[in-house]
Design a protein around this nucleic acid. Sequence first.
DNA 1: ACAAAAGTGTTGCATATACACCCATGG
DNA 2: CCATGGGTGTATATGCAACACTTTTGT
Lengths: 215, 215
Amino acid sequence: MDIKNPLYKNQGIHVVLALFTVENGKFKVFLIQRKNEPFKDKWILIGGACYNNEDVDSAMKRELLEKTGMKDIHFQMFNVYSKPDRSPVCRMIAIAYLGVIDCNRVKYLKETTKTQDADWFEISHIPELGYDHTEILGDSIEFLKKKIFDSAILKDLFPKYFTLPDIHNAYESILNKKIDRRNFRKRLLQKNIIADTGMVQEVAGKKPAKLYKFV
Amino acid sequence: MDIKNPLYKNQGIHVVLALFTVENGKFKVFLIQRKNEPFKDKWILIGGACYNNEDVDSAMKRELLEKTGMKDIHFQMFNVYSKPDRSPVCRMIAIAYLGVIDCNRVKYLKETTKTQDADWFEISHIPELGYDHTEILGDSIEFLKKKIFDSAILKDLFPKYFTLPDIHNAYESILNKKIDRRNFRKRLLQKNIIADTGMVQEVAGKKPAKLYKFV
DNA sequence: ACAAAAGTGTTGCATATACACCCATGG
DNA sequence: CCATGGGTGTATATGCAACACTTTTGT
């Protein structure tokens, strides 16, 4: 293995994160706006280079902090993107991740050394993205929909305790369709994704809602 | 992005394939023996560098041909390995693939420029592997077991037509447990993974077996 | 006729869906 | 008392697991 061989020198490993939230019934993704070339002024998903002393999970964590100021976010790998020309800078592959958080419980930086803006965008109103991030975003949504009933993937979208209507609305927003309330409750309880806490919500204006938690 | 930055220069992208077969009821994986350092004389999974003009799928195809002489093999990505020290040569991540073929329908090279030997090894008798390939192999077996009833992942393990006892034995070997014949048949038929052809096997010595095909 | 291997069907259980009425609260 | 929103149960359909006897062929 000769690391100077032109066939495979100057390769780069990047990590990319599609970070989602649901706010007021709207399914949104977090985007950052680039400050420099390439793709200056374009919006893209959170991401950056993997350093030589990190595995890709650690790189994703660091990049998230550097580019957005966020930390303690859970995410999971879902795909790899490797078309030879996907980056104009050098040959670069991207390890793609997916995460879901409550946008109201997290602060983010509007500007960093490499970004000039950052915000949550409704999935139905996404601008044209830099690199191949439009494709990555599409795949990540598909992946999320497929996994949403298999695990507590929405765990960070809610505080410790939450009501059934809350989580029901989130599922409907993400899947973009109506789900029967009774069946929804049974499904999450049976699969042991959520559990009844015995507590009820302080009040809201109508009948008090019971509080649930993730298990 | 400065490709000379020591934080992320000299990175490499590798592809690795766990190629399986079942022969005479034995679940086996294909290994190659290294000719050079590092890990000289060690057995490892099929793999090598991804070139700058290829995506990772193409690289896997080419490496398979170069290291074993095999082609027209289907495989699918299942994980990424990225510990910083997983290769002593340079910082190298591995995109890991999984495939299953009929070992009797494929020729392979015993020696190439980089390998001094190659063979099928029973899963229960695997030598110590180079790099982190023992871990990769373990993960690939787990992945295969999880997906085996979800798709025609064993398609290349059989000729165009095959009998139910044949495929039943293969499943039992891979999963390493007994499966009820009747339920097995119903499951594969209902999921539309295999279909009855109406033909029967030429003869074998006992009652003729019906022939099935993948859909 | 019998040994060896392949073929097949029924029942019960678990899981998913479809569907409608009652209850607690605030105004 | 009524409007709003939250709570819950039953009946049906589908998917998976358990289980044993019959059929074909060769000897």
